[in-house]
């Protein structure tokens, strides 16, 4: 196991930091010569998950990016923040619907027709072909995006 935490940040929930995080993740992974699709997936996931945390979460946000350094493979991107129980429950329902969809791109396109809610999560799953899950404990929720087939970070 060559798990390595490339990025571990605690951020204020500021809108201006969302794009900055995407650029940081993208540039860091490019410098490590990570697979271009993995680098895009990580930067997209970091952007969309931090955006959700800023919009719907409360307080400080923790962002981590895990790599398998030996294999030069992305293991996952995690964004953790404080939130309400009702939001955590909505998030779980959305992710369950997404993970049970037989065709993620079809689910993403169908979601487009139903309004903006959940589009960012569906985009990570469909465009970056990542598996998105969440864990909720007390008043905190962590959303984790992993490449298909990656071991749990």
């Amino acid at each position: 196991m060559a798990d390595h935490v490339l990025i571990d940040l605690r951020l204020l929930p500021r809108w201006e930091l969302v794009g900055e995080l995407r650029r940081l993740v993208s540039q860091s992974l490019e410098k490590l010569s990570l697979d271009a699709d993995d680098a895009y997936g990580a930067s997209l996931a970091a952007h969309e998950l931090l955006e959700n945390a800023v919009k719907y979460g409360q307080g400080e946000v923790r962002v981590t990016v895990h790599l398998d350094r030996r294999e030069k493979k992305l293991r996952g991107v995690s964004v953790e923040n404080r939130t309400t129980r009702s939001h955590a429950a909505r998030l779980k329902r959305a992710l369950k619907a997404l993970s049970s969809a037989p065709d993620r791109m079809a689910a993403y396109v169908a979601l487009m027709g139903r309004g903006p809610g959940g589009l960012g999560l569906a985009r990570i799953a469909a465009e970056a072909e990542m598996q998105v899950t969440c864990t909720a404990r007390a008043n905190r929720v962590a959303v984790i995006a992993r490449p298909q087939g990656a071991a749990h970070a």
Binding site: G19, H47, E48, E51, M112, G113, P116, L119, G120, R123
Partner: peptide, 16 residues
């Protein structure tokens, strides 16, 4: 360089 999902949603609204 990049569009986030809210920007994509503006196009979705246009096409709808």
């Amino acid at each position: 360089e990049f569009m986030n999902s809210s920007a994509l949603n503006a196009f979705v609204r246009w096409f709808a």
